[in-house]
Amino acid sequence: TFVEFNGKKVEYPTPEAAEKAAKKLAKKLNLKVTKKNGNYKLE
């Protein structure tokens, strides 16, 4: 499962880990999380 932000793509071993990381990053970077095709994107 990938988390995409600032043009970077980071892969996580589980969807749970990706979701957790996405939410944490979104909060830190003041972005919102969108889920697309099972992957997460911060914008």
Score class of each variant (00 low, 15 high):
T1E: 03
T1D: 02
T1V: 14
T1M: 07
T1W: 15
F2I: 11
V3M: 04
V3S: 01
V3W: 01
V3H: 00
V3E: 01
V3F: 04
V3C: 04
E4P: 00
E4R: 03
E4T: 07
E4C: 11
F5L: 08
F5P: 00
F5R: 02
F5T: 02
F5Q: 01
F5M: 06
F5A: 03
N6Q: 10
N6E: 09
N6P: 03
G7L: 03
G7N: 09
K8F: 14
K8Q: 12
K8C: 14
K8L: 13
K8E: 09
K8R: 13
K8V: 13
K8D: 06
K9P: 04
K9E: 06
K9A: 10
K9I: 14
K9G: 04
V10Y: 14
V10T: 12
V10C: 10
V10R: 13
V10W: 15
E11V: 14
E11H: 14
E11T: 13
E11A: 12
E11M: 15
E11Y: 15
E11R: 14
Y12W: 05
Y12P: 00
Y12M: 03
Y12T: 00
Y12S: 00
Y12E: 00
P13Q: 09
P13L: 08
P13Y: 07
P13C: 08
T14Y: 05
T14G: 05
T14P: 07
T14R: 03
T14K: 03
T14S: 11
P15I: 09
P15L: 08
P15S: 10
P15V: 10
E16T: 08
E16C: 09
E16S: 08
E16G: 09
E16D: 09
E16H: 10
A17I: 09
A17W: 06
A17G: 06
A17H: 07
A17L: 13
A17S: 10
A18F: 01
A18S: 01
A18M: 00
A18P: 00
A18T: 02
E19G: 07
E19H: 11
E19T: 05
E19R: 11
E19F: 15
K20V: 10
K20F: 12
K20C: 09
K20W: 11
K20Q: 13
K20S: 11
K20D: 10
K20P: 00
A21V: 08
A22D: 00
K23A: 12
K23L: 14
K23G: 08
K23P: 00
K23W: 14
K23V: 13
K24D: 14
K24S: 13
K24T: 13
K24Q: 14
K24A: 15
L25Y: 05
L25P: 01
L25S: 01
L25K: 04
A26N: 02
A26V: 03
A26G: 07
A26E: 03
K27R: 11
K28E: 13
K28F: 10
K28L: 14
K28H: 11
K28Q: 12
K28A: 13
L29F: 15
L29W: 14
L29E: 04
L29C: 10
L29T: 04
L29N: 06
L29Y: 15
N30M: 08
N30Q: 10
N30L: 06
N30Y: 06
N30E: 06
N30F: 07
N30D: 07
L31C: 06
L31P: 00
L31S: 03
L31G: 02
L31F: 03
K32S: 09
K32R: 12
K32P: 03
K32G: 05
K32Q: 09
V33M: 09
V33Y: 07
V33K: 02
V33L: 12
V33C: 09
V33R: 01
T34C: 07
T34R: 06
T34P: 00
T34D: 05
T34V: 14
K35S: 09
K35L: 15
K35M: 15
K35E: 12
K36G: 08
K36Q: 15
K36W: 13
K36A: 14
K36N: 14
N37G: 11
N37P: 03
N37Y: 06
N37W: 05
G38I: 01
G38D: 06
G38V: 02
G38P: 02
G38W: 02
N39L: 10
N39I: 14
N39F: 09
N39Q: 08
Y40A: 02
Y40G: 02
Y40T: 02
K41N: 08
K41T: 14
K41A: 10
K41V: 15
K41W: 15
L42E: 02
L42A: 02
L42R: 00
L42T: 02
L42D: 01
L42Y: 01
